[in-house]
Amino acid sequence: MELFGAIITLIGSLFLLLGALGIFRMPDVYNRMQAGTKATTLGTIFFLFGISIGHLECGCFGKIVVLILFVMFTNPVSSNALARAAHFTGIKLTDRTKKDDLEKDNIKNKGEEK
């Protein structure tokens, strides 16, 4: 059981590593956020889960379930807030961007106000 837990923990840290690499490689804020949110969420879930089943004797399974739930609920909220703030302060999207509906609608709304 301890070995199994250790393997899951290892997978989790691998995802965290990929997330860090993603933040490094992606071209703009929004794409970085993509790598940052998803990889860290699953990485943390695997990591904590691996610890909880690797050390069953500590009786911390319930606590870790609660931790996983909190990470799952709060992580997307924070990344959403960051992405929203980034867009509102006018940080440009990368040149490879296909389209930006939000920008288009903002311009449209401004036009209607005038």
Binding site: L18, M26, A35, L93, R96, D101
Partner: peptide, 13 residues
């Protein structure tokens, strides 16, 4: 992330 060409095609929909 790991593929060398970085196959992204981003946009806001």
């Amino acid at each position: 992330v790991i593929s060398p060409k970085l196959p992204i095609n981003p946009g806001i929909v």
